[in-house]
Design a protein around this nucleic acid. Structure first.
Lengths: 152, 152
DNA sequence: GTAATTCGTTGACCTTGATCAATAAAGACG
DNA sequence: CGTCTTTATTGATCAAGGTCAACGAATTAC
C-alpha cells in the first residue's frame, strides 16, 4: 500500500509482521503494527475513499490474504452477518484509537513506554527499539534513556 | 456523568454546549466538546462496560435528551435500522479519534491550533481560549504566544 | 461606579525530549 | 574468523513548550 492512493482493500495476515506508517519530513512515524491473525489496511482511506496518508510495509517476511472493498461488499449482500462484523470492527478500531489518544493526552514518554512494556510485551520483544520509539512518537535515544533510568 | 461510574446512557443535545474531560493531577484535560445536534456520552465506557475515566459537564446552559443503553437496545430490536446507525456512529467516532491522534503524531502545538482555527472556527469562536488550549493539550500561555507570533 | 472575579498576555526561568556526534554491541556475510 | 552494516547507548547541546508570577482587560456583583 502506497501513500496517495485510495486504499480499497483489507488484508488478513497469515504470518509475519507489518507496519503502517505516516511520513513526516521524510521520517516514518509508525501508526500501527500488525501480525498473524490481524487485519491490515488503511481503514481510514478505505472508509472515506480519500487518498491514503499512510504506507504499509513488511517488517518480516509476511503472507497476507487480501480482499477488495468491492468483493467484500458483494459478499456482504449474500452474507448479511458481515455487516455485524463490520460494526464490531469499527467499534474495536474506535477503542484502539481512543486508548492511544488518551495515552498521548495524559501520559509522558516514559509512562507510554512502561504501559507498552506491560500491555504489549509481545510487540516489544519482537520489534526493534527504534520502531517502538516511533510508535510512541519519541526518538530512539529517548527510549534508551528511559530504559537506563528504570534499571538503575 | 461522573468519573468512575459506568456510562450507560447517550445524550442528544438540543441546545447549549458541553465538555467531556479527563482528569490529570486535578486539572481537566478536554477530550471533546459537544453542542446542538451532537451526541454526548462516554462512549468508551458505554461500549466496554468499564468505569468511565471521564466526566461530562456543561459549559453553557444546556438541554439534553438522554436515553439509556437498555432502552436503546430494546428499541434496536423493534427498529432494526438502529443497528445501521450504530455502525455509522462507530465509524464516525473512529474517524474522529484517528484525525485527532494523527494531529498529535504529526503536528506541533502551533500547527494543531492553526488547523483547529481553520477547521473548527465555530468552536474557537464560542469557547474560551483556555478550554481550546486544554483540547489541544497545551497551556493557555502557549496559545497566547502562538497567536502573538501569527499576527505580527 | 467600584470592587472582585475571570480570562488573556507577557516575561523570566525550567524541564522534557530532540538533535548531533561519537562509540559500542550485535547480527549478517564473505 | 574478521569485516560490514545495523541497532543501541551515551554525552553535550538545543528547542518547544511548561511553570510561575505579574499585570491588564473584561465581566459580574454589589
Amino acid at each position: 500500500m502506497e501513500e496517495g492512493k485510495i486504499c480499497n482493500k483489507v488484508g488478513l495476515i497469515e504470518s509475519g509482521l507489518m507496519k503502517c506508517v505516516f511520513h513526516k519530513h521524510g521520517d516514518e512515524i509508525i501508526f500501527e503494527f500488525a501480525f498473524e491473525n490481524n487485519f491490515i489496511s488503511d481503514y481510514y482511506s478505505f472508509v472515506t475513499d480519500t487518498p491514503s496518508a499512510k504506507e504499509i510495509k513488511c517488517i518480516e517476511d509476511t503472507t497476507v490474504y487480501v480482499i477488495t472493498k468491492d468483493r467484500l461488499n458483494k459478499l456482504g449482500r449474500s452474507h448479511p452477518f458481515i455487516e455485524g462484523i463490520s460494526r464490531q470492527m469499527n467499534e474495536k478500531l474506535f477503542l484502539r484509537m481512543h486508548d492511544r489518544l488518551k495515552s498521548f493526552l495524559l501520559d509522558t514518554a516514559s509512562e507510554r513506554y512502561m504501559k507498552l512494556m506491560s500491555e504489549r510485551s509481545d510487540l516489544v520483544q519482537r520489534i526493534p527499539q527504534y520502531l517502538i520509539a516511533s510508535y510512541l512518537n519519541v526518538k530512539p535515544e529517548t527510549i534508551s534513556r528511559i530504559r537506563k533510568k528504570n534499571t538503575l
